[in-house]
Every structure is written in structure tokens, then in C-alpha cells.
Design a protein around this nucleic acid. Structure first.
Lengths: 158, 158
DNA sequence: GTTCATGGTGAATATTTTTCAGCAAGTTGA
DNA sequence: TCAACTTGCTGAAAAATATTCACCATGAAC
């Protein structure tokens, strides 16, 4: 799918606020409502837009304590990796999990209420996962930037 | 603000898909459309729901190369920290930036198209930032989990 | 017992989304 | 060159949704 300037602008506006109406968008882009509507539907169909979501205030839902937990596995067999990943996905405290290069194999972003809950999570859940060798926790002191908008690249793969 | 079981369920549904209609939500929750509508509006007013956004496919917008860049500052004066943070926020490649505990001061999550673009970013932009001491890049090999849904905690601060 | 505050309902109204018929420009191939 | 086709647009109409409103029940406060 090839995204033109209008598509990119549209994506930028929808990332900022997905509740914008086609009428509002059409005025900003200088197009008809239907034209905008069709472009959005197309990007949804093609999977450029994956999902619409509501972003919550972590403080207000009691999940302000964020930890980056680096994890090294004991052994990197296919089975171990698959089993570990499957288990990690099922932990609701684990907001994100990436397989990464470097000293550690995985980085987990974990959202809990406070240090006590994090300790509980470590002791009762994370430690139970199989094949975990070593962990290293980095605590978030402050959030400087967390943008919901990804700049859309001009050139694209087919 | 106190969130009851219905609010939490509502938040969970809206995080999964913010485009769900009040009608659909009302059926799932066993309430009237208006009751659901009022609950949502209240959570928007109170700031529990911060924003609605469209999530894009990083591959399809040519931003599939993700790097976690750890940064240490040379000196931690108020001025340096403020200046650094201000500059970082303005870089569109930097999707997220956290002030953290540990060996490094900041973790940046950076989205670009490929290694070449990352190199360019490092050389022409990141290195230009003042007060940067040391950096360490960790490359994302795979995304195991990236959930748009944060579990909502039961108890809340006022 | 009256007065509030809270959270609900169903109907009416305002807005928005979605569909549809058609138009114009550009491409393709005989 | 011209018919056939594709693409992306427009404006109006229809369908669905959001929003407002008047009103009801419940429980707490005084």
C-alpha cells in the first residue's frame, strides 16, 4: 500500500485523536467527507491502522509504578524460548515484552501499583517462569515523553 | 474518582477497541445506553481516559526498526536535565523517553526504518544533544507482547 | 419525613457514519 | 484513437449512533 501526503496527515490526526469525525477531518484536509471516509476504511482494511484504543491515566488507575525488567534465559533452545514467551504473554502485569540484542534476552515493561506489588509479582509470578537465568530491574523515575504518534515514513515496502 | 466493577469492565473494553458503540457496550454490561454514555463521559472528564488513538502497523509505515537507547548524562544539574529533556521531546524518532534508576539516566525508545536511519539519527541528532555522556543501544529483535490494555487496579488514590 | 445526591431508564433529537449514483482524469490495449 | 477500466473524488440520501432530556428509584444526611 502506498501512502500519500494526505494519508500521512490523516494518520497523524487520527493518532492524536481517533474520535475526530470525518467531517472535521475533511475540513482540515480540504476533501469531502466520503473521500476521507474511504481513505480511512482502506487503511483499516490494509492493516495500516491496526486498532483504535483508549489511553488511560496510569496514576488514576493505580498503575503508576513502571519497571523495565531485563531477563536472561538459561538456555536458548527453541522449546525454552517458545515456552517462556507463551508464559510471559499471559501475565497481565507485563504490558510489553521484547526480544532484544545485548547482555539480556528480553526486556519487559511492567505496570503495577507500587514497589510492594512489584516484589510480589517478582516472587510469585516471574520467578515461576521456566528457563529464567538472570534478571535486572530498572525503575522508572519519570516519564519524559510517551507519544502516541509515530511519524509515518514516506517510502514503503510493498 | 472511584471506579467500580462496571467502570473497569468498560475501560477494558474501550482499551481493546475504542470504536465500540455505546449500544454494543450497553448490551455487554447489561445497562442502558445512557448509563454507559454517562460513565464514559465522566471518566473522560475526570481524566481516567486521557485520549483516544489509532494504533498503526509499524511495518506498514516503515518504522519497524526499534531501538532502546540508554543514555547517561555528563552532569546532573537541574539545568542540564531540563535542557536535555526539552531537546529529547522534540525528536520525532523518540517515541518514548523515561528517566530511570540504575547505570544509565534515561531510556529512549526509538522508531526508525532501518539500521542506516538509526545511524543517521545517532550521528546527526542524538550526538548533538548537550550533556550526553554515554550511550548504549539495545536492538529489538522481536515483539513478544505489546498490549494496549492495562489492567485497572481495584483500589484507588483520591 | 424531607431534601439531596447518585445512578439509572426510555424517548426525542442532533450528529455522524455509511451507502450510493454519478463525474472526471489517467491507463491500457486492440 | 477510442472503448473499457480503474481510481479517487463529490453531494445527497439512508442508516446508525451519540447526545440531551424529563423522569424514576434508592440511600444517605439532617
Amino acid at each position: 500500500m502506498n501512502l500519500d501526503q494526505t494519508d500521512r496527515k490523516l494518520l497523524s490526526l487520527l493518532q492524536e485523536d481517533a474520535k475526530r469525525t470525518t467531517k472535521e477531518l475533511s475540513m482540515q484536509l480540504g476533501l469531502s467527507k466520503t473521500a476521507v471516509y474511504e481513505r480511512i476504511r482502506k487503511m483499516e482494511r490494509e492493516g495500516v491502522i491496526r486498532q483504535y484504543t483508549a489511553l488511560l491515566d496510569r496514576e488514576k488507575i493505580n498503575r503508576a509504578f513502571v519497571v523495565f525488567c531485563h531477563i536472561r534465559l538459561t538456555q536458548h533452545t527453541k522449546e525454552n524460548v517458545a515456552e517462556f514467551e507463551k508464559q510471559v504473554v499471559s501475565l497481565h502485569e507485563v504490558q510489553e515484552c521484547y526480544h532484544v540484542s545485548g547482555d539480556y534476552d528480553y526486556i519487559l515493561k511492567i505496570h503495577v501499583a507500587n514497589m510492594e506489588d512489584y516484589r510480589n509479582f517478582m516472587v510469585t509470578k516471574l520467578t515461576d517462569l521456566k528457563h529464567i537465568g538472570n534478571t535486572h530491574s530498572i525503575f522508572m523515575i519519570g516519564e519524559v515523553k510517551n507519544s502516541s504518534v509515530i511519524e509515518v515514513g514516506a517510502r514503503n515496502k510493498t
